[in-house]
Write a protein that binds this DNA or RNA. Structure first.
Lengths: 106, 106
DNA sequence: TTTATATTTGGTCATTTTACCATATGTAAA
DNA sequence: TTTACATATGGTAAAATGACCAAATATAAA
C-alpha cells in the first residue's frame, strides 16, 4: 500500500468515523431535509450544549457538514447530501443481523 | 426520541463506527471482490495478527461481515455487499473538501 | 500422537474519545 | 453601552479504543 493509498483510506475512514456516533448520525439525518440551526438540532438531544457543539465540529472537520453564521445563530447543512443514501443499506445490515435488531426495524 | 428510535440510531451508528477505522475499512473493501481468509487480508497490513483478528471481530460484531471456518483457515466475506456502494459518496465528500484531500483522489 | 500452522483470546498500557462545567466570543436588543 | 442570547472553546475526568505480547485453541500434516 502506497503512502497515497494509505492517506486516502484514512481520509475515508475518518468520514465514516464521524458518522459513527449516535448523536452525530442523528444530527446528520436531521439535516437531510435542509439546514438547521444548532438550537433546532439541540432540541431533541439530551446533552450539554457544549457537547452538541463539539459533535458538530467533528462533522464539520470531517467535511460532512458546513456551517454558516446568520445573525445570532449558526446554521448547519450537509455538504454532500448523498451521505444519507447509505442509510437503507445500513438498515439492510441490521435486518440481516436479524434476531438482535429485527424488532428495531418494525 | 423514543427508546426504540434511540436503539435504532445506536445500531446504525455502530455499523458506521465499525467501518470508521482505516484497517477495517481497508479489509471491507478488500472483501468486495469475494471472500478472503485472514491470512490473505493480513498480507498487506502491517500489524500484529492479533490486532487484525480483533478488527475482524469488530466488523463481525457489527454485522458487516460473516466468517466461516474451512480447514485451518477462517474465511470472511461481506454480509451485505451494498456497504461499499457508499464509497463513491464518501469520495465525493473528500472532493468537496478539496484543498486538503484533492491530491489524494488524482 | 506429536508437531506445525492459522486464528483467537486475555492482559496491559498508551492514546483517544466523550461528557460535563465554566468561561469566552459574537451579535442583537434594550 | 449594557444586557441577553446563541454558540464555541478550554479544562478535566472517566470510559472506550487500539496496539502489542503471550498464551490458548483448533485443525491438518508428519
Amino acid at each position: 500500500m502506497t503512502g497515497k493509498e494509505k492517506a486516502l483510506i484514512e481520509a475515508k475512514a475518518n468520514i465514516l468515523k464521524a458518522l459513527g456516533h449516535p448523536t452525530r448520525l442523528w444530527m446528520a439525518e436531521r439535516l437531510a431535509d435542509g439546514e438547521k440551526c444548532v438550537c433546532e438540532l439541540a432540541e431533541n438531544i439530551d446533552a450539554d450544549f457544549s457537547t452538541i457543539s463539539k459533535h458538530l465540529a467533528v462533522l464539520k472537520q470531517a467535511g460532512v457538514v458546513i456551517d454558516e453564521k446568520r445573525g445570532k445563530q449558526v446554521y448547519y447543512r450537509l455538504k454532500v447530501p448523498c451521505i444519507l443514501n447509505f442509510m437503507p443499506c445500513i438498515e439492510a445490515v441490521l435486518q440481516a443481523t436479524a434476531q438482535k435488531h429485527i424488532e428495531l426495524m418494525e
